[in-house]
Structures are given as structure tokens and as C-alpha cells.
Deep mutational scan, measured.
Amino acid sequence: AEKTGIVNVSSSLNAREGASTSSKVIGSLSGNTKVTIVGEEGAFYKIEYKGSHGYVAKEYIKDIKDE
């Protein structure tokens, strides 16, 4: 099942092309942005936001229960 997560940073969080800190940054998400978690790979979540996919470090995403 898809989960919703909240970007848990004070400034912004980089979204990357792949599940690695050396992957190209494809965008950034500001704190408290809601994202859909579609998968996980190592220390990263694969997320969907406004129709695009990217990878973000798990430690900066807070899971919330689907309402």
C-alpha cells in the first residue's frame, strides 16, 4: 500500500534521480511537503510528488498514517 510521508526538514530536501547521494539532484522539496512513498531502496524512499518520481533520504521523511 502507498504511504504518505512528510518532508521533515527546516529548509529543503533534495530529491534525486537514484537511491544514492551521488545521484543527480532533480528537485527540492520544502519542509512539511506531503509526498507519496511508493517504494524503498536502502536508505532511500522512492517518492511521487506532483506526478514525478524521485529518491529522498529516509531519515528526512516522517511517515504519517493514511487518513
Rank of each mutant, 00 (worst) to 15 (best):
V56S: 00
E17K: 06
E40V: 06
D66K: 09
A57Q: 14
T4R: 07
G18C: 15
T4K: 08
T4F: 13
V9L: 07
E59Y: 07
N8I: 11
K34P: 07
K65Q: 13
K24M: 09
K3Q: 07
A57H: 08
V7R: 01
Y60I: 03
G5D: 02
K46G: 00
L29P: 01
V9Y: 07
H53W: 14
D63V: 15
E17L: 05
I37G: 00
E67V: 14
S30M: 14
S22Q: 11
R16V: 08
N32V: 05
A19V: 07
S20Y: 07
Y55L: 03
E2Q: 15
V9N: 07
E2T: 15
Y49K: 00
H53L: 10
I64N: 05
F44I: 01
S23Y: 06
V9F: 06
K65A: 11
K50G: 13
N32M: 10
D63S: 09
E2P: 15
A1D: 09
S23Q: 03
V25L: 06
Y45I: 03
T21C: 15
I37K: 00
S10F: 09
I47L: 02
V35D: 01
E40Q: 08
S11K: 10
E48F: 11
S28Y: 09
E67G: 12
T21H: 14
I26T: 03
L13P: 08
T33Y: 05
G51N: 07
I61F: 05
S23N: 04
N14S: 13
V35W: 03
G31I: 08
I64Q: 05
K62P: 01
E40A: 05
K62M: 12
G27H: 05
G27C: 09
G18W: 12
S52P: 00
K65Y: 10
Y45P: 02
S28C: 13
S11C: 15
S12E: 12
L29S: 01
N32G: 15
E59Q: 10
H53N: 05
I6G: 01
D66N: 12
K24T: 07
I47F: 02
V35F: 02
G5Y: 06
G18R: 11
K24I: 07
G42Q: 03
S11Q: 10
G18L: 10
G5L: 04
G31L: 09
S20E: 07
I64M: 07
K50E: 11
E41F: 07
I37A: 01
G54V: 14
V9E: 06
S10R: 09
S23K: 02
K3C: 13
V7K: 02
K3S: 06
S22C: 13
S52E: 08
N32Y: 11
G54M: 13
G5F: 08
S23H: 08
V35T: 00
E2I: 15
E41P: 00
T36Q: 09
Y45G: 01
T36G: 03
T33L: 06
K46D: 03
S30G: 08
G42I: 01
K46W: 05
S30L: 14
A1Q: 13
N8S: 11
E2F: 15
T21R: 09
K62N: 10
E41K: 07
K65P: 09
S20H: 08
K34D: 02
V38W: 05
A19P: 15
E48T: 10
N8M: 12
S30K: 14
E41D: 10
E40H: 04
S11D: 13
F44N: 01
S22P: 03
K24A: 11
G42W: 01
A43I: 09
I26S: 02
I61G: 01
S22Y: 08
N8G: 09
G5V: 03
D63Q: 11
G54A: 15
S10C: 15
V35S: 00
I47C: 04
S12M: 11
Y45A: 02
N8F: 10
K62Y: 09
I26H: 02
K50L: 12
Y55I: 02
S23I: 04
K58P: 00
G27L: 11
S30Q: 14
D66Y: 14
G39K: 02
S11A: 10
H53S: 06
S52T: 14
N32Q: 10
